[in-house]
Structure formats: C-alpha cells, structure tokens
Amino acid sequence: TTITITINGEELRIRGDHEEIHKILKAWEEDHNDEEIVRLIRELAER
C-alpha cells in the first residue's frame, strides 16, 4: 500500500503494510499533533 500525505507543504509518500498505514491514519483521526504524525511517517519512510 502506498499513500501520499502533504503536511505543512511537505509531501510524504509512505509505503507500508495495512497495519502500518492504519496506525498513521488512526493517529491522525485521534487528532494527534502534526509533529507526532510526521515522526510516524518518517519512521516508515526510512525503512
């Protein structure tokens, strides 16, 4: 699965399995701050 998210003008492409993507979207849905979401995404992007 690949998704693209733009946060603060920075486009981040994430490839991951369903569970990893779900974790990010769940954090977003629960209204975590952008920095935390960006950190989760970067961790995935670095793999």
Rank of each mutant, 00 (worst) to 15 (best):
E43F: 06
L12Q: 02
I21Q: 01
I14M: 04
V38T: 06
E43T: 04
R39T: 08
I14Y: 02
N33A: 10
R39C: 02
V38F: 04
G9R: 02
E10T: 11
E36Q: 06
N33C: 07
E11I: 14
H32M: 15
L25W: 08
E30D: 13
L44C: 03
I41Q: 00
I41F: 04
I37N: 04
H22A: 12
I37E: 00
D17I: 05
D17M: 08
D31F: 09
L44H: 03
E30H: 10
E36Y: 09
E46F: 04
I37T: 10
E30L: 13
W28R: 02
K26V: 10
K23Q: 12
R39D: 06
L40Y: 06
E10N: 07
E19A: 11
E43P: 00
L40G: 01
L40K: 09
E30P: 12
I3C: 03
L44E: 03
T4N: 06
E35Y: 07
D34V: 14
L12V: 05
E11N: 07
D34P: 12
L12I: 09
H32Q: 14
R15N: 11
D34I: 13
E43L: 06
G9L: 02
I7Y: 04
W28L: 09
V38Q: 12
E10P: 00
I14E: 00
L44V: 03
V38K: 13
E11P: 10
T4S: 09
I14P: 01
T6I: 14
D34H: 08
A45C: 14
I41H: 01
T2Y: 13
A27N: 04
E46Q: 03
G16Y: 06
I3T: 05
I5A: 01
L25Q: 05
T1N: 10
H18M: 13
I5D: 00
D17N: 11
I24M: 07
L40P: 00
H32N: 13
H22N: 12
R47G: 15
R39A: 09
I14S: 01
K26P: 00
E36N: 11
H32A: 12
E19C: 04
H22K: 14
I5R: 00
R42K: 15
E11H: 09
R47D: 15
E29T: 10
I5T: 01
E30Y: 11
I21Y: 03
A27W: 12
T2S: 11
E10I: 10
I7G: 00
R47T: 15
N8Q: 11
K26D: 07
R47Q: 15
R42F: 06
K23A: 15
L40R: 08
D34N: 15
I3A: 06
E30T: 12
G9F: 04
I37G: 01
V38A: 04
G16Q: 04
R15K: 11
E20A: 04
D17Y: 10
D31T: 06
T1E: 14
T2M: 14
H22Q: 10
E29N: 13
R42I: 14
G16W: 08
G16R: 02
T4V: 14
E29P: 02
G16D: 05
T4R: 08
E29Q: 13
G16K: 03
H18Q: 13
E36K: 06
E35V: 12
I14A: 02
I7F: 09
I24V: 05
T2V: 13
T2G: 05
D17P: 08
A45H: 04
N8A: 11
T6L: 11
I24R: 01
I24H: 02
R15C: 05
E43Q: 04
T6F: 14
T4C: 10
I41N: 00
D34W: 10
E35M: 11
T6K: 12
A45P: 01
H32I: 10
G16N: 04
L40E: 02
I3F: 09
I7E: 00
E35H: 10
I24Q: 02
R39E: 09
H32P: 15
E29F: 10
R15G: 06
E11L: 12
R47C: 15
I7D: 00
A27K: 13
L12A: 01
I21M: 06
E36C: 02
E20R: 02
H32K: 15
E46R: 04
T2W: 15
K26I: 11
E19P: 05
N8F: 07
R13A: 09
T2L: 09
L12M: 09
K26E: 08
G16L: 12
G9V: 02
E19I: 08
E35K: 07
L25N: 01
T1L: 14
R42S: 05
A27V: 07
T2F: 11
E43V: 05
G16T: 06
L44W: 13
V38W: 07
R42V: 09
L25M: 10
I5C: 02
T6Q: 08
I5H: 00
I24P: 00
T1C: 07
E36T: 09
E11K: 09
L25R: 04
K26G: 06
E10V: 09
E11V: 13
E11Y: 07
L25C: 04
T2Q: 11
E35F: 07
I14L: 13
T6S: 09
I7P: 00
I3R: 03
A45E: 12
E35P: 15
R13V: 15
H22S: 12
I3H: 06
L44P: 00
T1H: 14
R39Y: 03
I5S: 00
I7R: 01
T6E: 09
I14F: 07
R42L: 15
E35C: 08
T2H: 11
T4H: 08
T1M: 13
E19M: 09
E35D: 08
R39P: 01
G16C: 06
R15T: 14
L25A: 04
E29Y: 13
N33T: 12
E36G: 08
H32V: 13
H32F: 09
E11C: 05
I14R: 01
V38M: 12
I21A: 03
E30F: 12
I5P: 00
K23Y: 11
K26T: 10
E46G: 02
N33S: 10
L40A: 08
I37C: 03
L40Q: 10
N8D: 12
A45G: 03
G9M: 03
D31C: 08
I21G: 01
A27L: 14
W28N: 01
T6A: 06
E20N: 03
N8H: 10
I41E: 00
E46P: 00
E43D: 07
R39M: 07
H18N: 10
E19S: 09
E35N: 08
H18S: 14
T2R: 04
T6P: 02
E36I: 05
I37W: 06
E36V: 07
L25I: 10
T1F: 09
E29A: 05
I41A: 03
N8C: 07
A45W: 05
